[in-house]
């Protein structure tokens, strides 16, 4: 799971090493990545939103 989160984070930055990538693509189903990606997008939005909220106050 940690690996999945790390990979999705890497995807957000757009940087991924070949080794980790190989590892990701060993896994048989893409679903963990897709679900984590969507969840992390939501988390990302919440984080930026709370930073904005904090900065505005």
């Amino acid at each position: 799971m940690l690996q999945v989160i790390k990979s999705v984070l890497a995807a957000f930055l757009g940087v991924q090493s070949e080794k980790n990538r190989q590892q990701d693509f060993q896994s048989r189903s893409p679903w963990p990545f897709i679900v984590t990606g969507v969840v992390m997008t939501l988390v990302f939005v919440l984080v930026v939103a709370s930073v904005a909220r904090w900065a505005a106050s």
Partner: peptide, 11 residues
Amino acid sequence: HENTTVEVIWT
């Protein structure tokens, strides 16, 4: 065709 360190830096 890859260098993770460089990529992390330029990101």
